[in-house]
Design a protein around this nucleic acid. Structure first.
Length: 482
RNA sequence: GGGGCUGUAGGCUAGCUUGGUCUAGACUGCGAGGCUUGGGCCCUCGUGACCCCGGUUCAAAUCCGGGCAGCCCCA
């Protein structure tokens, strides 16, 4: 499928991304605080579309939305030792109320475990209160020391969807992890974002987790972006926060917990994996505007053309399609095409004098820019059919592209060369020892993503660790990452 | 964490070495009007900036110090 070029997109991704988010516009980076940004009206609508899909999936699977406070007292934040050890260098502190120094320092939440779990202790009394499954969408703050990047590495994560669950047994909580992974797989499936699911190595788990499963995607420049994580917390937090429930038998037991999160990185990925040199390309379910109708007015037939366009827009809207009419008089059609293409509107409808005479309209797909003429009476049907094709194509194209970026390597040199030359992800065999894993990271100058979620332990009989040469127990993935 | 570079209208760019002629630009955007409209038409008029604070100086976009912000490289 030809479509517009993806030259800048692939060769100068950083520039492309910045240009797209600022020109569309989606996200304004000019706010004078490092690592923050502004969601513009269009960007906010795009963000809402993504959140709607996330909310729908979570609510459908029994999660209730809540909202906890932003401020966390220092004694709570530091209660789980591993958790605080990993976050303490990047916490923002509120130390004053006006001019008065606070007796208890308050953290701007870097994540909400320590805000929520003392309250879980109050909410959970008996087994009948379990399972507890909640989520919230909030800003979290992390004082990033690495270079910040709009939407990708920020100090105020402005779109942090975090879900937290509590269960009676280890098995139930482990089952919830699998459910969480499936929920996220469906969400990214809806967004047509291809992903790899990896079990993070022990040295890169979420602070306080027993096990972390991560979703990664590959960006146009070949670097990997983490777009979601699902954590099994075991009883680490429930013991630290003393969250107990009374069992059927009358004894007390600490709950078993999970948590999982998605941030605006998912939106950065959505923008990046589908885009081309004309700007955004959006799946129809995400696009804030699904169809734009553009009148091709000629002198003498303005009224007639405009009337037909209004009719077309209304017909599309009554068919449940988010349609807009661009009747700005001072822009040429070409000008309008470019601006709506930048916004990623999946389908454009053109109606001009030729169409009036023939009783037709022209529809143009954003992904391929292919034009077809359809009968005006069946416009809505034709548009819906185009949506189906576009959505299929976007899913196929992004998945195929990612697959070309995942390679196997059987030696250190091969792995390093692959990463140097094409980026992406390399898969290797690994004995499972942390020492080998961390040495591997240094040797190939990459980050270990972990082992495939789907087949954590399945490797061939004669597989050897890429580093020490001993029997391999696992496959391991590595990549250059954001 | 270490090092380097940068900051001039909404965007992009020149000027900075050697302080004064620089309230710069045939660009783009934005506003008004005209002419147009099947891929960024054209014309006229208008609009807008030297990141912040301090210092040096008769004089600072330019030199110095600090802050804030951004980019790049290394760990």
């Amino acid at each position: 499928m030809a479509g517009p070029e993806r030259k800048v997109w692939s060769e100068n991704y950083s520039e492309w991304f910045h240009k797209v988010i600022s020109e569309t516009p989606i996200y304004d980076t000019r706010y004078p605080v490092k690592g923050t940004g502004i969601w513009t009206p269009f960007g906010f609508r795009l963000r809402s579309s993504v959140l709607n899909i996330i909310r729908e999936e979570l609510e459908r699977t029994g999660h209730d939305e809540v909202l906890f406070p932003q401020l966390i007292p220092d004694y709570l934040l530091s209660r789980e030792s591993e958790h605080i050890r990993n976050f303490e260098d990047e916490v923002y502190w509120v130390t004053h109320g006006g001019k008065t120094p606070l007796d208890v320092k308050l953290a701007l939440r870097p994540t909400s475990e320590t805000a929520m779990y003392p309250i879980f202790k109050l909410w959970i009394n008996a087994y009948s209160d379990l399972p507890l499954k909640i989520f919230q969408v909030v800003s979290v703050f992390r004082y990033e020391t690495k270079a910040t990047r709009p939407m990708i590495r920020v100090r105020e994560v402005s779109t942090f969807k975090e879900a937290h669950t509590a269960h009676a047994t280890r098995e139930e909580a482990e089952e919830q992890v699998r459910t969480g992974v499936e929920v996220y797989s469906r969400i990214f499936g809806e967004l047509k974002i291809p992903f790899l699911r990896s079990v993070r190595p022990d040295w890169d788990k979420f602070p306080g987790a027993e096990r972390s499963v991560a979703f990664d995607t590959i960006m146009p420049d070949g670097k990997v972006l983490q777009i979601g994580t699902v954590h099994f917390l075991g009883q680490n937090f429930s013991k630290a926060f003393d969250i107990k429930y009374m069992t059927k038998e009358g004894g007390y037991e600490h709950v078993w917990q999970t948590c999982y999160g998605i941030s605006e990185r998912a939106i950065a990925a959505l923008i990046s994996v589908h885009g081309d040199d004309r700007g955004l390309v959006l799946p129809s379910n995400i696009a804030p505007v699904q169809v734009v109708v553009i009148p091709i007015v000629y002198k003498g037939r303005e009224e007639e053309v405009l009337k037909a366009c209004v009719g077309a827009r209304d017909a599309l809207q009554s068919a449940g399609i988010r349609a807009a009419l661009d009747n700005r008089r001072d822009l040429t059609p070409g000008n309008k095409y470019y601006s709506w293409e930048m916004k990623g509107v999946p389908v454009r409808v053109e109606i001009g004098p030729r169409d009036l005479d023939a009783g037709t309209a022209v529809i143009v797909r954003r992904d391929s820019l292919k034009k077809v003429q359809v009968q005006i009476g069946s416009l809505a049907e034709a548009v819906k059919e185009a949506f189906r094709e576009i959505d299929l194509e976007l899913g196929r194209r992004s998945r195929d592209w990612m697959e070309t970026k995942v390679r196997k390597a059987s030696s250190i040199d091969e792995a390093k060369e692959e990463l140097d030359r094409r980026g992406g992800v390399v898969e290797m065999f690994w004995c499972g020892r942390a020492s080998c894993g961390q040495e591997l990271e240094k040797a190939i100058d990459a980050r270990i993503l972990g082992t495939p979620y789907e087949d954590e332990i399945a490797v061939g009989q004669d597989a050897k660790c890429i580093l020490c040469g001993e029997v391999a127990l696992k496959k391991i993935r590595a990549a250059r990452s954001y």
